[in-house]
Amino acid sequence: MPEGDERSDILLMELTASGDREAFASLISRHQRLVLSVAYRFLGSREEAEDAAQEVFLRLWRAAAKYRPETALAAYLRTLTVNHCLDVRRRPRLLALDGGDDPPGQEDPSRDLEASERRGALEAALQSLAPAQRMAVVLFHLEGASMKEAARLLQISPKALESLLGRARAALRERLGSLLDAP
């Protein structure tokens, strides 16, 4: 895999569509952080984020011939990632029978924690949100997407996104409670 591959995304995608694995490897290296960032912040687990990223890039490989260069590859990958992550959370999940660790969000975040640990409570609170709310917060607040872009990725209107974000923030405030009063 070439270091610092200077070739453009469009060229690399054309090569990928023709079966060039080296070009595809360059694309992965160049864009995996973008995919992993959305997946990790939404799914809340490194392992799930890596699994999701693999699936997203495999889809990219299979659909490379259909890719239209009018859409920036980063935006296309972000779309694939959002759709895949929401699908993952929609599937019924088998519960662990061995009584494993409580999933994030089950702890009581209103304990008296230091400010530096508030972020951990925020992560747990994020995981307790409904998938659509969580993805809205991830895209708009954590990934820095614009309202227009986030609405496009969620396939809702900007007005609906504003409402969704409002409910998500209210839920987070409720969940974090007095932790938000800490200096």
Binding site: M1, R21, F24, A25, I28, S29, Q32, R33, L36, S37, Y40, R41, R46, A49, E50, A53, Q54, F57, L58, W61, R118, R119, L122, E123, V137, H141, L142, R169, L172, R173, L176, L180, D181
Partner: peptide, 27 residues
């Protein structure tokens, strides 16, 4: 006040943990 604190926290999330290069696994 709490909302402002929440927005501030959301604006500075935890950095991503390090991830390995996924290319070999995907290929």
């Amino acid at each position: 006040q709490r909302h402002a604190r929440l927005l501030s926290d959301l604006a500075s999330p935890e950095p991503l943990p390090p991830f390995p290069d996924l290319a070999p696994r995907i290929l």
